[in-house]
Amino acid sequence: MEETNRTAAGEKSAERRVIIRTVGLKKIYTMNNVTTEALRGVDMSIFQGEFISVMGPSGSGKSTFFNMIGALDSPSIGRVFIDEVDVAQLTAEELAFLRCHKIGYIFQSYNLIRYMTALENVTTPMAFGGVQPDEARERGMNILDLVGLKERWHHRPIEMSGGQQQRVAIARSLANDPSVLLCDEPTANLDLHTGQEILDILKRLNVEKGVTVICATHDHRMMNICDRLMWIRDGRIDRIANREDVHIEVGGIEGH
């Protein structure tokens, strides 16, 4: 069953470009002589323009997997290719460049810089990327407009609601026009309505801009908008399914 699904997904997307690929990904943490295998060999490909949800209980290795494909941590064994570039081969400066330009990060607790205004938060990655201040300001305003917060550009995070903060965070992640958005439970701290807004924005970006969205989530509404779902359990891929296939089984999943 699992095999079939993976093959099916692979065949369906055969002609599409692979943006992130992992090969035999393993991560072993050693602390006080106790070794924990957080990932036990993950092979998978994520295609360009795809909206993929990663699901799994706590301690399943989901976060570790996220850190790997987000170039935030290096695997113990195995490789991560982001657009066919082996992350392990990159220097610290190149990794910074990769994080700055190619991947947008969205966090569960927004992680906006508290002492910066919405606009400054959005333009900071641009500044890191070497964009001139005037241009950064203009682009920042456009992106804030995209998430509907143009009017509040001068507000600091503390003056905004959770949903607005997350929208600023999305705007920030888009600052350097990344190929991949990596979202770590983006709706977990939000109420249903606001969470839906965030999901809508993510979907819109996915459809309109063709950004690859990878979402770690417990939110079942994600199933309605994603292209593929991936379950991780005990450091392994439990199953990968296309949304259409899952829809049929919704009854079975609701119990989870």
């Binding site: 460049f97 700055c100 190929s179």
Partner: peptide, 17 residues
């Protein structure tokens, strides 16, 4: 969609820092 060409990250200007 743009290609990924990995380069070295430049230094942030002193003023901004």
């Amino acid at each position: 969609m743009k290609e990924i060409n990995i380069a070295e990250q430049p230094w942030l200007s002193l003023k901004r820092t």
